[in-house]
Design a protein around this nucleic acid. Structure first.
Lengths: 153, 153
DNA sequence: TTCAAATTGTTATATTATTACAAAAACAAG
DNA sequence: CTTGTTTTTGTAATAATATAACAATTTGAA
């Protein structure tokens, strides 16, 4: 999905954005939280909590709450999203405008692309408003095969 | 969300539809599977697998695989959907046209409404096609408060 | 009636996540 | 600084969700 790219800059962009957000909000972006976010960003796939735990455990004496608490913090601040259909987590690629996002999940390369603020979101809003439903949180996860993987096919 | 209504007819409609589908497809709609579907349909909320298990266990010596296998069968045949954001299951309210469905989930009354084939689905298709993504399975779950609960509120 | 396939029973275990409480670190007020 | 408070982290235990593996049974077809 992302093919070959300078992934280091994905990581560093994400870390800088996280720094900025935490600073702006007066939050403590601790060593541990930073480390978890880096691990989440190791690639563009969704990562399982217990895989994070294993990686963390090399440096920290990590137990499940260690990683779940860090993930909770990161999710609350829009730096990480949970992919419910996979029970796994991805780094947010645009944490400042993370409303109405959805996810394309390639079942071949296992990468996840986050998409924002499109006609889809608008259609959801309209549909839901038509029902008089006050929506709060939307989970939209689209599983399939990305273009790159189709071409390789 | 559904307010007061003749829920018995929801159940019987669902059972009739399930009978028809299984007959048409030459599937075995066994006592157990039927029983699980009835339990799923006890109300319009999403039900947890282990709650089903407890209820089942009164009549059957049910173990987890008992209920998960029945749910698997029902899901495969579009009679039940899993709500990923809740890890819970709902009966499908229109099992014959269960493509491009999504769910409104009221966090007050805990009921779930299934919606089908709307502009939302169309917007998703367009969006996804624009990315060259071949989509296979869509999870769209909208959490909020239904109109009835807002009015009571 | 026998064979093969599908279903169910059963035990065990894997996976995902939370609770509860203690220790430590960070921070703010005096 | 130092005291008290809040936040974060450590740790053990356990809860909640789900699957694997294999045996027994039932079903349906030849």
């Amino acid at each position: 999905m992302y093919g070959r790219h300078e992934h280091d800059s994905c990581i560093s962009d994400a870390m800088v954005a996280a720094d900025d957000i935490c600073k702006a909000r007066g939050l403590r972006f601790t060593e541990l939280r930073r480390h978890v976010l880096e691990l989440v960003w190791e690639n563009h796939g969704a990562v399982k909590a217990y895989d994070l735990l294993e990686k963390l455990d090399k440096d920290y004496s990590a137990k499940p709450p260690t990683v779940y608490r860090a993930l909770e913090f990161l999710q609350e601040n829009g730096l990480v999203h949970k992919i419910n259909s996979l029970n796994a987590y991805v780094g947010c690629s645009h944490p400042l405008k993370h409303t109405d996002c959805f996810f394309l999940i390639c079942s071949n390369c296992n990468e996840v692309q986050e998409c924002c603020g499109s006609d889809v979101a608008k259609a959801v809003r309209n549909m839901v408003a038509g029902q008089g439903f006050a929506h709060n949180q939307t989970t939209l996860e689209i599983e399939g095969v990305c273009q790159e993987c189709q071409l390789e096919g």
